[in-house]
Design a binder for these strands. Structure first.
Lengths: 233, 233
DNA sequence: AGCTTATTCGTCATCTTGACGATAAGGCGA
DNA sequence: TCGCCTTATCGTCAAGATGACGAATAAGCT
């Protein structure tokens, strides 16, 4: 290996976001071993020999959620390598960000003893639950990335089932941004945007209220002009 | 060290961009040793023991350009860890993106035998010069990040000297985006944006044409609504 | 003084947004 | 069956932003 000094352990951590019950939630696991034993943490693990970073992230995602690669949006978030972030030594972790639709079934296929969805607000709000390592910061960065990408991409649909209504899509924006949106203006914006969403033809049947048209994602990946969040001084 | 297996070598690579002569240019070094000996590459190097990733990037930037930390915009770009990207073994590299004003003095303080500014167009255009490792892809990602951030942040000013004219700022946009902009509409946009740039009071003296007002950056870091590039499908 | 050059100010039609009224289309109870 | 309730969808209107372009301004140069 011509004198290459391996100077770090490389891991991946996952920020898996979903919207359930109009709340933005993140998948956490409870650590079973030191360090930070018993503390909530982002799922993750070591990158295997000859394994790409993205592949490792997809593998971890499948192990924790049962979601097959390609079944969810998965993108690299950032890499964290502060010297003291892991008491065991030099651990450099590349975080990945995943968007999942609300799974009807519970978190399946998880090998971790305790994995569960936790409200993001409870972790980043006024009196936050402390996470292991620097995972609070990683989560903060992931949520900010998600909020920002909703503005100018069609990624909100990654939180939805393949067919969805405009109102469902709107509730994704409202949950991720933590802000109510005007249903009429939102409807106008997303239906008039070129190839953003396209009607399926069918409608929902529902308990109360007018049936809604079903849509699926259009080909467009970018939303121009963007849909800017309110406020944000 | 409780059984922590160091499974990778961690490095940082730098995408240092500047605008010189109305062209977007990137700082490259010529490799003096195998692998890819003699090939152009992004500057970079191994992360030292107990050194943060961002610190390592700032150190490399200073070693290559003489620019002190804080003297340039520096942000993490992405991390590249494909198994075969370095023939010497498992090398995971975190790329950082830096924006520099056009330095009047040549690239100073460089320890590399040959470091020089190269037109980005010559590297990413129709018949690109091949770079070492996966550096062409890293450069592509860095340039796309730069193009995108000009749209909604005030980072274009990071390419300028502390005091600059509206036209200088416009030429930054034109060089990075590779697209001409209407001087009158650009002027209206940047001068009317809240706290984006603020007048210094002085004006330039120049060989031909009306003297221009000098500006410095305002407090705003975000540009709302954004300044979208033309075209872009 | 006129010419050249680059900056800055105006105008106007078009597009987009935010606020909000009005209508449509189902279920449900009386 | 008839209103009523709820949610979805369509319209309107003023304010703001944009793209295209004309015009005025303020220097240096010949």
């Amino acid at each position: 290996m011509s004198g290459l000094r391996l100077n770090a352990a490389i891991t991946v951590d996952l920020v898996v976001l979903t919207v359930r019950g109009d709340q933005l939630q993140v998948l956490l696991v409870r650590r079973g071993a030191a360090p930070f034993k018993g503390r909530w943490a982002l799922p993750g693990g070591f990158v295997e020999e000859r394994e790409d970073l993205a592949t490792a992230a997809a593998r971890e995602l499948r192990e924790e959620t049962g979601v097959a690669p390609g079944g969810a949006h998965l993108e690299q978030l950032a890499t964290y390598g502060a010297p003291g972030r892991d008491p065991r030594g030099r651990v450099v972790s590349t975080a990945y960000l995943a968007f999942l639709p609300d799974m009807p079934q519970p978190v399946a296929g998880s090998d971790a003893a305790a994995a569960s969805w936790v409200e993001v607000e409870a972790l980043l709000g006024a009196s936050p639950t402390r996470l292991a390592f620097d995972h609070t910061q990683i989560l903060r960065d992931g949520v900010e990335r998600a909020r920002s990408k909703l503005e100018y991409t069609s990624l909100a649909a990654a939180f939805c089932r393949p067919e969805f209504t405009v109102a469902e899509l709107r509730r994704i924006y409202e949950a991720v941004w933590g802000t109510p949106l005007d249903p009429r203006n939102f409807h106008r914006k997303v239906t008039s945007a070129e190839r953003f969403i396209e009607p399926v033809g069918a409608t929902t049947r529902r308990v109360g209220g007018r049936p809604a048209q079903l849509f699926r994602v259009g080909g467009a990946t970018l939303l121009t002009p963007p849909l800017l969040r309110p406020d944000r001084g």
